[in-house]
Design a protein around this nucleic acid. Structure first.
Lengths: 195, 195
DNA sequence: TTGGCAAACGGAACGCCGTTCCGTATGTTT
DNA sequence: AAACATACGGAACGGCGTTCCGTTTGCCAA
């Protein structure tokens, strides 16, 4: 690994200054808009907030999913990275699973409408789907494997289904005080235990 | 309770013949359209299938939810009525619960997109929400109470949350073979058991 | 049978939304 | 400073739900 090819050379020449500025503005505007109006906020609203035209949004983020991913990338990353840490810190793999799922739920329920978008099977949300799952399924799998190995949970459990299930349970959380998504997720995770 | 006021008198005068005919046609057309294109099928499509104008749809069914309710009323009714029957026939209340939830899942997963519509918090779906819950929550409550009384499940369980949870888990079922909604529902119900 | 009227109809029209497209402006490089 | 690629803005388009109103149709009474 010599530093061959490193240095100032940029194979992808830097983008224009205004383009970088607008991308920043769009991310900020989108983040703010998502908080106040949910991830379904009309594209035009985001454009107005950012002070750009709608065309600029599509140039930077071809689909809404791309924008959502870009806005939440950091938090998803943090959630993914917390997995191995929890596994190391917790008394048992099952405890780690419960805590990790809790993090995931935290993330979902604070993002108005994100859980619903996550489940959409529209082609446009392929990116969103792919990013979430590619990043989180392996982490979940690792925890599940450990819990199975410890004999704590049923062996026939797959991370993909579990994550989608948890995601679905979080849909509509926060709209209705009678619907306690977190409790249902707890029940679901409890259902995984061997009896 | 004499048969006072019974007989041929109709306080609500019969609707016109064409109105009744169109309502029938609309219900049939909607049912067919829901099967092939899901409950999100464009209103115009239903109108074309029924051979009527869009205005006619809105005159008979002010909101999409009204139409959905009308189309599925029979099946919802059947599900509701199955509750007490299962409670009487099953070995334990918990068994009745499991079987009843299974019926509910059967209903949801065969109606493309219905589960998603059921969760929508848009004002237009208030009717749908209300009808489903008014009809099914009491039934579920009865079964849950029996199971609690038998000491089979946790005491702090509410029917509303459970039904919404099950409904949410059914969202997207059938779109992806890797997502097994029924299994997740089973896990959720298993999580209700006392341990 | 027919006249009149309320009921019901159809589809044009409106507004919102996502998305595309292209004439214009702006940054960058020589 | 000239020339070029890059990026911009917003008009324009198509699809959708919903409303509205001029027209038609069934019903009943004369």
């Amino acid at each position: 690994m010599a530093d061959f090819d490193s240095g100032s050379e940029q194979p992808v020449p830097r983008k224009r200054a205004d383009a970088r500025r607008n991308e920043r503005a769009l991310l900020d505007a989108a983040a703010a808009a998502f908080v106040t109006s949910g991830v379904d906020v009309p594209v035009r609203d985001i454009a107005v907030r950012a002070g750009v035209g709608v065309g600029t949004i599509y140039r930077h983020f071809p689909t809404r999913a791309d924008l959502i991913v870009a806005v939440y990338r950091h938090q998803i990353e943090a959630c993914a990275e917390a997995g191995p840490a929890l596994l190391a810190d917790s008394d048992t793999p099952y405890a780690a699973l419960a805590r990790w799922i809790d993090l995931f739920v935290d993330f979902l329920v604070t993002k108005h409408g994100l859980a619903a978008a996550l489940q959409s099977d529209a082609a446009a949300f392929q990116t969103l789907h792919a990013y979430f799952l590619d990043r989180l399924v392996p982490v979940c799998d690792q925890i599940l494997d450990a819990a199975v190995a410890a004999g704590e949970i049923r062996p026939d459990t797959n991370a993909y289904g579990l994550l989608r299930g948890v995601g679905n349970l979080c849909i509509g959380a926060g709209n209705d005080p009678r619907y306690d998504a977190r409790r249902l997720v707890d029940l679901l995770v409890a259902g995984l235990r061997v009896r």
